[in-house]
């Protein structure tokens, strides 16, 4: 019995996350049939799309053994930048470009400090969290800025196509782009090489610093894009968006997808699964009216259990 079970388990291990997602969907829909309604499933995807975009874009950073704690404030400041540009009468593409550009600038600063001086990513991005939040608050103050009269802008986050909200398409597009970057461009190879053995990558002639600049810029650009979508969803921009804890949710989604914080292993496609896993859990507990305290505890326990199981499977 056990002898026949072991090979099956080994065969299934790589798909454990998919199985877990299906298992939870089955359990939630058994307990509450409304869970399987199309509106609810679309709702789950819409809710995870912002975290998802940030998580997919941060995957490369975590694959190299780094981390980006500054995504929350970047989300806020990029929304503000887009808002101010549009308010000043510039056309929509310029507004979006301004928001993304601010994000990319922060990411380049992160990457530069980390790559050029060899500073620890957790501290650099922690300092940047503080710096960017302060800058956003100086620029935008503590108030909400209402966005009015930009119909095509609000369509980005609040519109829908064929009954499916736009953020889902955008999440899909970003995920597809990053997966393409990982599997069809040299960047994916370089990231894996740095994560595996940074010294070896450098000695074999890779320009490690250039790759780091690119991946931290990508992580921040993802946060900037999420920030723009959020401002269009809620029709306001504010310096306080992306509150403390956003970055931890994003990191949790990436590591649940199997990307290791010690670098080397990881895949953007599996990050999408990690995002969906968290989304299903959150939505299921909401629909079952689980109180917020038990939700937090369950989330913590599930993250620890999932990663411990993954660690066990490796040995």
């Amino acid at each position: 019995m056990i002898a026949t079970f072991a090979p099956v388990a080994r065969r299934l291990a790589p798909h454990a996350l998919v199985l877990a997602i299906l298992l939870f969907i089955a359990a939630f829909s058994f307990l509450q049939p409304a869970f399987l309604k199309p509106e609810n499933l679309i709702g789950i995807l819409r809710q995870v799309s912002l975290i998802g975009i940030m998580a997919v874009c941060m995957t490369f950073v975590i694959m190299t053994g780094g981390v980006d704690l500054s995504v929350g404030p970047v989300l806020a400041i990029s929304g503000l930048a887009a808002f101010f540009t549009l308010e000043a009468g510039w056309p929509l593409p310029i507004g979006i470009a301004a928001g993304i550009a601010v994000g990319v600038a922060v990411g380049l600063a992160n990457g530069f400090l980390i790559a050029a001086f060899g500073l620890p990513p957790i501290i650099v991005t922690l300092a940047m969290l503080s710096i960017v939040r302060g800058t956003a608050l100086i620029a935008g103050g503590p108030d909400l800025h209402a966005i009015r009269g930009h119909d095509s802008y609000t369509f980005i986050g609040a519109g829908s196509l064929w009954g499916i909200p736009m953020p889902i398409f955008l999440f899909g597009a970003v995920a597809a782009a990053v997966i393409f970057l990982q599997f069809a461009t040299p960047l994916g190879v370089r990231v894996a090489a740095i994560g595996d053995n940074e010294r070896a990558a450098r000695l074999s002639g890779h320009r490690v610093w250039a790759t780091k600049l690119v991946i931290y810029a990508l992580s921040s650009a993802g946060a900037a894009f999420a920030g723009i979508i959020q401002t269009t969803q809620v029709h306001t921009a504010a310096a306080t968006y992306g509150e403390f804890g956003t970055e931890l949710d994003v990191i949790a989604a990436v590591v649940l997808g199997g990307t290791s914080l010690s670098g080397g292993h990881g895949s953007a496609a599996r990050t999408v699964l990690g995002v969906l896993f968290l989304g299903v859990i959150n939505s299921g507990m909401n629909i079952l009216n689980v109180p917020i305290d038990s939700q937090l505890i369950a989330k913590g326990v599930l993250i620890a259990a999932a990663l411990a199981a993954a660690e066990r499977a490796k040995h």
Partner: peptide, 29 residues
């Protein structure tokens, strides 16, 4: 214990317990 026996990385282990302990605070509030 999470770090030693479940071989979790400290960042992840304490990130998970951050959520769990904060939930516990609400539970016993």
């Amino acid at each position: 214990l999470l770090i030693v026996y479940l071989r979790l990385q400290p960042f992840i282990a304490t990130l998970a317990s951050l959520a769990a302990y904060r939930g516990l605070v609400y539970l016993i509030s």
